[in-house]
Each structure stands twice: as C-alpha cells, then as structure tokens.
Nucleic acid binder design. Structure first.
Lengths: 343, 343
DNA sequence: CTGTTAGCGCATTCAG
DNA sequence: CTGAATGCGCTAACAG
C-alpha cells in the first residue's frame, strides 16, 4: 500500500493542496466544516504526512536529541524524566541516543550531529574527551546544553548540581559524628564531579583542622572488583590508621562497599560508617539504608530542557551561555553512626 | 551562520551539485582526487547535509524507533543494548521514545507513529491496551516488531522469553527443596507474562500432585507499599497455612519482599525461601543473593532488531509475522533453601 | 476562505 | 567521470 500524499487527499476531498496543508497546520483560516471533512478523509485513508517533507519545508525537524552515556546508570532515567516533562508540552519530540559503550560514546555523538536529525541537543557527558569531540563537531552551531557536566571546560550552557557542597556536607556530617579518619572510594579523578566532591570533603576536614590521612583516598573506576579490593585494602590497615568512615563516590559503589564489608563481617554503622552519592531509589532500600547526597536529577533535566527551548525559539545566536548550579542535599539514613573506635 | 547547502559546497569546489551528491553517497564513479578535495571543502566549511532533504529524496529516514514504557525498569537497558549492538553496524540510527507515564504510553505511540519519523518500530509493551492502540494506528503499515510481549493478541512479529518454563523451573526447584506451600506475589494478572509464569508454577505443582493452596496467590501492581502489605498478610497466616516459599513476579518486587521480611525478623532462606524473576544485575548483589530466573534481554533486543532489519530491507509486505521464544534459565543463589517447617 | 506558484536540499535519471 | 533537469511531499506567500 503506497503511502498517500497531501495531493491525494486534496483530490479525494475536492480541494487544493494548500487548503489541506492549512488544516494540517491548524490554521484558523479554514472553514470548520471543510476542516472536518478533510480530517475525515485523512482518517479514512489512514493518511500520515511525510515527516521528511514537513521538516524540509519548515526548516526544522522538531526533534530534540538527548545523548547519554548509557541507560544502566539509574539516574539517567530521572534526568530523562525531567526533560520529557518539559518537552512533552511543546511541539518538539525528544529522541534518546545511547551508545553500547559507556566509556566512549563519541561515535554516537558523531552520528547524531552529522546526521543533522536534531534541532537541538541535550547531552550528559562526564568525560572531557567526549566533550571536546562534541564541541569540535558542533561548531556548526546546533544549540546544545550540557547536563551534569559542570566544571568541565567548554562554553556550552550547562546545568549541574553542587557537588562541592555535597562533599562538604558529607564531611561535616561524618566529622560531627566523631569520625577523624575518613576514606574516599573515588571515581575517576579526571572527572570534574569527582574532583568537586573531593574538594568539598577536604575543605570540611580543613575546617576541623584535619588533613586527609595518607593513603585514605582510593581511586577506582566502575569495576566492582576494583572497588571491592580497594575496600579490603583500607580495612586491612592497622587499627590506628584504619578509616572509621568510607565515602563512596556514588551509590552503586557504596552498595558494593556494603557487600564487601558484610562478607568480611564488618558491621555498618557500628564498625564503620558508609556514605554514598546520588540517592538513587535503591539507596533507601538496601540494608542498612544508605546515607547519601541527593542530586535533583529530574530538575536538572527540566532546567536543561528549558534552556534549550528558549535557545531554539529565540532568533539564533543569542549567545546564551549560562551555567546553572542546583543544590544538593544530605540524606541521613542508617549507614552512618558515631565513631566508636579509639577516638 | 546560515547552514550551507550542497549547492554552496559545489560552487566552493568548482563542481556541480550532482558530483558532490555522488561523493556524499560514496559512489565509486568519482575520481578519488576529486572526492578528497570535495571532502576537504566540506570539512573546512563544516558542512552537514540536510537530514530532511536526504530523507525526502531517498524516501527513507533511516531511523528506527524504539518505544519503551519507561527507563526505570532495569532490563530496558539490556534490551536496548541488544538492539543497539545490531543497529550500530547498519545505516540505520536508533531513536528511543519513552513516556513519562509508565502505565499508559499510548500518547508516545501516537506521536511517534503520526509523526512518521521512523522507518520501523521496535516496541516493548506489556499492556494489551497499549498494544491495541499500536495496531490500530499502525494500519498504515510501518514495520513493527514487539519485544517481551509474547502471548498478547496481535499479528505483529514478536520476540520474547519462555516465561512458562521459567515458572515451571521455579516450581520444580522449590518442590525439590521440599516446599509444599508456595505463595506467589503476582504482578498485574492481565499481563500475559504474569499469566505464563503462574501457569508454569501451577503445572509444576500439578506434576507433584499438589494444588496451589487457597489464598496463596497475592495480586499486586508495582507499588512497593502493596507488595509489602501482601507479604505481611501471607506471613501472618497460621503456621499450617503459611507459605514456606515466596515467588515474586520480578526481582524488584523480590527485593521489596526481602526488605519486608528482614524488618519483620524473618530469616531468608532459613525461615522462608524467596525467588525473583529477570535476574537484573542487583539480584546477585543483594543479601541474601537472589535465586531468580534469567531472561536473555540483550538477545531479545538483538533478535528483534534482526527481524526488523530484514523486514525493512525486503520488498515490502512480505508478511513476516514470526514469533520467537527464547529460553529462560533458573539461577540458584542464596535466597532459597530446604523447607524446614513442619514437613 | 480557497487556489496558484515557488521553492526547501538532496538524489537520480540521462546526456555529454 | 561530470553537468543539467526533474521530482520527493510539504509550506508559505500571494492572489483571487
């Protein structure tokens, strides 16, 4: 069944193409009766206007691309939700591009940009390398806004959360509980968000007149095995150097830490306190429930969408290069408690 | 900066439009030197061919739409991974459409289909209502394949997993451990996959000459509170009626059950065994590690993509309406053990 | 309110 | 190997 064109349905309803076009675009300049008739004919013949032709004629695909590293990170769903909530009330449609490679998705970026499908882009990127590629490819000038990429070097508008204060709050909370040796299970230290959280924790310790103990910062990546072995190493330190609290760079890492500790017979929070970051759904449901830092992911998505929409609707090159920092919040649950060991 | 057209770069490189078009389409009929020169000019001026124009001229957007209920279900990422793995080696691009409403995303389907953006569709739908809407809208004839929707009523090609055998295996495993009173924490019973799993469990019990005990099938939805209260009710039954094993309809529900039991001081698997379904990543990491049924989600995605691609590349209306059932597998971990109570 | 006339940017004949 | 001509399906002035 060959697809019908606007011409067919014009003929079918005894009108001209342009009248049909007008009803397609909800023009008020068309007689309601005529409109209804045309609509009926379209439905009857199952007519769908060609997306490509419309886009070409209008000079706008009406598609907003969202580029994310992968779907396995829980909070992607939350960011996406925020974006979708804003976009679904507009004439735009959001399409999500992912990669099968979480580390390097420049390939996806390549394809999305060079296909030119999208009118604008919302991208979640933590890696400077990916970002560089994005900026390079995007010199053409497709409106783009970054999410969760604060601190990275680029002139693109960005919205993120206050990772520094998150780290600071964790530090103060732990210090307030009497902890003095606080270890960090860090993510990749070249990621800005990791650096920010670390800086926050350090500043909190400085406030208390403390220096981060030597060997208490363990760098890891996203491999569970590595996180486990780093945790083991930390707990094997002599009692006077062993940390009484562990700050994991994100909740999933914290879960792994929790599992490792449980298997080693270490009690949480009696023997050691554990803190995560992000407050993903599961954080409230593991046992013990995880103390963590909440990031307003849905809000981040919403704000990013807002920025992109205004950029899209304004006369181009308005040079809106804003940077929005949303607050983070400490959520205290059961995985942290007073330091009992030799204080 | 106005976007350049093929005409501009033709002029810029002193050639005709068609020659440029040929290099765009990798035609071998163009002098390599000329090709390189043209490519250089394109790069220099940051030229990107218009997606809409290309799609219109070729009569194909080269976009495959994937419609999913939401991103919060862990296994969506796995299905998507499988699809992406297949599609990324083709000329097609995959775009993911989600809804902010997991229950009813017919709106998303409406928009995707009536926009006509996609050349083909891969849709994950568990709800017959959503499916009906899909079929109705899709009478136009956009190639579509269903994922994880086996058992639903439609003529569309579909790939899913063997939920019946999954239920059967769970039943036999539990029966083999001596359990006689096996309760089910069911999902929405109008969902085919729920029905299949239940049928499997029932058949296993029939094999052992048993009937599902009265009141041992608790229907729930996706609300945590409901799952918790159903679990409580089951455990409050008198000792001679209380189940010694709980079969949750998916892993997340099983986690909730586990939490509820832990809070009530019920030991797993000593006091009661718990089984999930899906084998999402976390299943291996909760404590106790969850016995569950593995579904080959990535494979499901792969197969669906394969089917769609052949449908897309074949001369239309080949009426490929296949139905692929992939095997499920029981993964025994620590949450199930021998029945000890009054046997 | 409706019909006419041009393009939108590219692919694809068909001659040279 | 290259250039000129034509059309993909729709929108957008402009006339009537």
């Amino acid at each position: 069944m060959a697809n019908l064109t606007i011409r067919d349905i014009a003929r079918l309803s005894g009108l001209s193409k342009s009248t049909v076009s007008l009803v397609l675009n909800n023009s008020p300049k068309v007689d309601p009766k005529t409109r209804r008739r045309v609509l009926a004919v379209m439905r009857e013949h199952n007519y769908v206007p060609s997306f490509a032709a419309t886009a070409l004629a209008k000079g706008n695909t009406g598609l907003i691309g969202m580029i994310v590293p992968g779907l396995t990170w829980r909070f992607m769903a939350n960011i996406n939700y925020g974006v979708a909530k804003v976009i679904e009330d507009t004439k735009y449609e959001i399409v999500l591009f992912t990669s099968t490679n979480e580390r390097d998705y420049s390939g996806a970026i390549d394809r999305v940009i060079s296909s030119g499908v999208c009118a604008g882009l919302i991208v979640v990127a933590h890696d400077q390398q990916v970002l560089d590629r994005l900026v390079e490819l995007n010199r053409g000038g497709m409106p783009t806004v970054l999410v969760d990429t604060l601190g990275a070097i680029s002139d693109l508008p960005a919205v993120g959360a206050d990772n520094y204060t998150g780290g600071l709050l964790v530090g103060r909370h732990l210090l307030g509980l009497g902890h003095r040796r606080i270890a960090s299970i860090l993510g990749p230290t070249d990621h800005p968000y990791v650096q920010e959280r670390r800086r926050g924790l350090r500043d909190a310790m400085h406030e208390a007149g403390l220096e981060p103990g030597p060997g208490l910062e363990a760098e890891t990546d996203f491999e569970e095995a590595l996180i486990r072995s780093r945790t083991r190493e930390l707990m094997r330190l002599s009692p006077d150097r062993r940390p009484t609290a562990l700050f994991a760079y994100h909740d999933s890492a914290a879960f792994t830490v929790l599992n490792e500790l449980a298997e080693a017979g270490v009690r949480v929070p009696e023997d050691v306190s554990v803190v995560g970051f992000n407050d993903i759904d599961a954080a409230a449901h593991v046992r013990p429930a995880l103390t963590t830092v909440q990031q307003p992911f849905a809000d981040m998505g919403r704000r990013a969408a807002d920025i992109l929409l205004t950029a899209l609707d304004s006369t181009e090159s308005d040079e809106i290069s804003q940077r929005i920092v949303l607050p983070t919040k400490l959520i205290v649950r059961d995985s942290t408690g007073p330091a009992t060991a030799d204080r």
